[in-house]
Amino acid sequence: MVSGLLSLPQERVDQLLATYARAVARRRRQFYLVLAVLALLATVAGRYGEVDLAYLLQHFSNFTSYFGRILPTLTFTHFAADMADWYWNLSGWLKLLVDTILIAYLGTLIGTLGAFATAFLTAQNTAPNPYLLFAVKRFHEFCRTVPDIVFALLFVAAFGLGPLPGILAIGIHSLGTLGKLFTEVVENIDMKPVEGVRSTGGNFVETVRFAVVPQVLANFASYALLRFEINVRSGTVIGFVGAGGIGQDLFVAIRKFYYTDVSAILLMIIVTVVLFDLISERIRHHLARLESDR
């Protein structure tokens, strides 16, 4: 049947093949060029990143044995005792974990209040003053581009060790990210109610209170919750620089090679983070339903 199909003379086939080859050659060249650039970048990056593959292969057992060593020895016969041994400092760690969550809560609160207070100034459709809009927008940008851990380092230098610098660092960084998100929410509202309130003679604050806030509250709450989720995660690490929470104990455990402590604390962190993710996802879905029912 193929012979029946191949009714074309050979020169016509060659001609078509050549046309096709010419057309795909450019694409292929581009593809190989991209591959070459990637390979070059990877080599340069390997140099900078001090990647030593030979060393890695030679010491690969270190790699796996580390993760073997942090695991506790749990026996079936002495399970309760082994667990108690593994989690010897459970109450202390739990207190630190609660601290972490409270730090995340207060940080999110500061960020949400700050973003709430400024988002109406930076949204194109509600902003009372273009210069103020520009300035506050740059402020938001600064707050979210500088990582929260950098703020934490600076604040530890200013406020001393403890949860306070952590709260402020998370708060400021959240203000930056939430400020941007809240602004976008406000920019997407229906403007008819705004005109309605303005037409009755309402000023900036009254317009925002009665025409804008009712439209944006559910979305704001949803974003704030999402931020809280992320902040719980951040809260677990700001302790590395002395800004409170479970991070400080994890830092010590890893640095001083208290192997089983590492896995104990890590497990607690993972469970907490996953738990808060699930709860906040539930609530956010609920909020989304409220929003769509409206």
Partner: peptide, 28 residues
């Protein structure tokens, strides 16, 4: 995937510093 994502990148960094020592390789 969920478990890996539950751990912040800084924690991973600290863990890998413990595994391969200080330096950019741990960061990678």
């Amino acid at each position: 995937f969920d478990t890996i994502r539950g751990v912040d990148v800084l924690i991973w960094a600290l863990v890998f510093v413990g595994v391969v020592g200080l330096g950019p390789f741990a960061g990678i």
